[in-house]
Design a protein around this nucleic acid. Structure first.
Lengths: 158, 158
DNA sequence: CTGCATCCACAGGGATACTG
DNA sequence: CAGTATCCCTGTGGATGCAG
């Protein structure tokens, strides 16, 4: 299996988030932080929500519990392998619960936990940002991309 | 160069974010959305903030403009190649500006743009969540990991 | 229906050497 | 100091086949 962060990385820190990192340059001798949290921890979250499917799955689990193939249809382009892996990772982090119903065709339902719901809130903020800045980013990207084809050769441009 | 999303993907959508996707199962014939936004777009953002370095760099650029090697020291484990690539990607998306000072040793400063600052805000919420749930996630992860070594062989366990 | 194991292709990302 | 190009390893994730 080749999931992300499979090894033990016990770097919990103080779990405090003051939120006032005003130019304190803590990197010079102290532990490099983002907003009072170690980047290792940030990395951990990013790896979880940035693995291409976790966020979408979390959003789909928002309203109500979902069955495996139900999620599979909802997520659209996801493969069985990835859905399983994503769900397992989310379950491992205590973000979703896995309920097995020993019926004949076998039924498994997934639902967000309390922690998962709090993450959903943050994730939706991210999605909201994406929606609000989609056009801006697209324009900037196009501009940059276009300009990158004119700047490269300042010599002989005239 | 092997940056992410180098190809043109003009799927901007309506850039609207109602936030009320109540069980409407839009996947059956309609465009799969997360909170009113297409997953393609979400993917785009996630690829940007989930690429292992972007978030940390954005946070470091939060307070004030930074020079190249200054950032390099602040981010800690980043390589020159990755810092350049990350900065370029951020610049491409209009999230950061690149100012060149043609001095003798040559000086380049990077700073967040307006869009970058709004993303910083969202990102910090994410970092905040990471800090607040670090311990909880770590515990859940340990529990799950430990339980995974006992469940696999229910047969012959008694 | 749900899930795991294997094979395989591609892209992200690290180390290093070179240029301006 | 700042940046680019090359080499190469690894993880991520897709396709498929098998099992409970």
């Amino acid at each position: 299996m080749s999931l992300s962060s499979a090894g033990p990385s016990p770097q919990e820190g103080s779990s405090t988030c003051p939120g006032t990192p005003e130019g304190t340059t803590p990197a010079a001798g102290g532990p490099p932080t983002c907003a009072g949290v170690a980047p290792e921890l940030v990395r951990s979250v990013l790896e979880r929500i940035g693995d291409k499917w976790s966020v979408i799955v979390i959003c789909r689990l928002g309203p109500e519990p979902r069955r495996f193939n139900e999620l599979r249809r909802l997520v659209d382009g996801i493969t069985q392998r990835m859905l399983t892996a994503t769900l397992r990772g989310l379950e491992r982090d205590g973000l979703v619960t896995r309920s097995v119903f020993p019926t004949v065709p076998l039924r498994v339902e997934y639902a967000l936990t309390d922690s998962g719901r709090t993450l959903l809130d943050v994730v939706q903020a991210l999605v909201g940002w994406a929606g609000a800045n989609a056009e801006t980013v697209h324009v900037a990207r196009t501009e940059f991309d276009r300009r990158a084809r004119e700047q490269p050769q300042p010599v002989g441009a005239g």
